[in-house]
Design a protein around this nucleic acid. Structure first.
Lengths: 107, 107
DNA sequence: CTAACATATTAACAATTTCTAATATGTGTG
DNA sequence: CACACATATTAGAAATTGTTAATATGTTAG
């Protein structure tokens, strides 16, 4: 094997982060598992849409679901995914600062 | 401000990772800056396509370009982006292992 | 069993993204 | 200046992804 991680798996995994609603879902369940309806309410979203994005996130390996009675609880897959989310924020603060300090004021 | 990092900026940033060619470009220049034609050759890709993805990555804040004569050298924006790429691999090894150990062999 | 609720799935359509080919721009060299 | 080369841009077609509304499935309570 030339690369440790299969490229298609990686693309799929990263694709999970590439949509506003999916990022919101991830952040919404970052600290605690939630049911689909809690997520729908929190994001003020549409049930079908959220459900599809949840399926996507699960397929990407970012979250896991646990059924309890008629409720489905979703949570981040593991601590590493949580760390990634935190890292995004850290890197982004930096990016935003850079953008700010790049504003050229040519008088 | 409720959140430190603007959601649209975050979506845009993460979108940068959401395509096979873009990930390949990032990995290709992970350790050293390269010119467009070097990247095109390394990835065995199409000049126009690579150029567009480079523009995308730059717009996402993931890479930076430095012109030298008629060449344009691209490199990762900073060490943090490099760290993110490494972290993806680390998390993914885990994901792949999980998938493996989840294969149920019911005899 | 049936009703009520939670979630998932489907299908058609809309929106977005990507690809390809052609062309444009920019830069150094003779 | 003219040519060669490196890279960027454009535009339209093709492919992918997302949305919406309707419906299906699964679970518990009565």
């Amino acid at each position: 094997m030339i690369q440790k991680v299969d490229m298609d798996t990686k693309v799929k995994f990263l694709h999970g982060f590439a949509h506003k609603i999916r990022i919101q879902i991830l952040e919404c369940i970052k600290e605690e598992e939630k049911t689909v309806s809690q997520i729908v309410k929190d994001l003020n979203g549409n049930q079908s849409s959220i459900s599809q994005h949840l399926a996507c996130l699960k397929g990407c390996g970012l979250i896991r679901g646990r059924q309890e009675g008629k409720y489905m609880y979703y949570s981040l897959r593991n601590q590493q995914v949580r760390d990634l989310l935190s890292m995004f924020d850290a890197v982004l603060e930096d990016v935003e600062n850079d953008v700010e300090s790049c504003e050229n004021h040519i008088d």
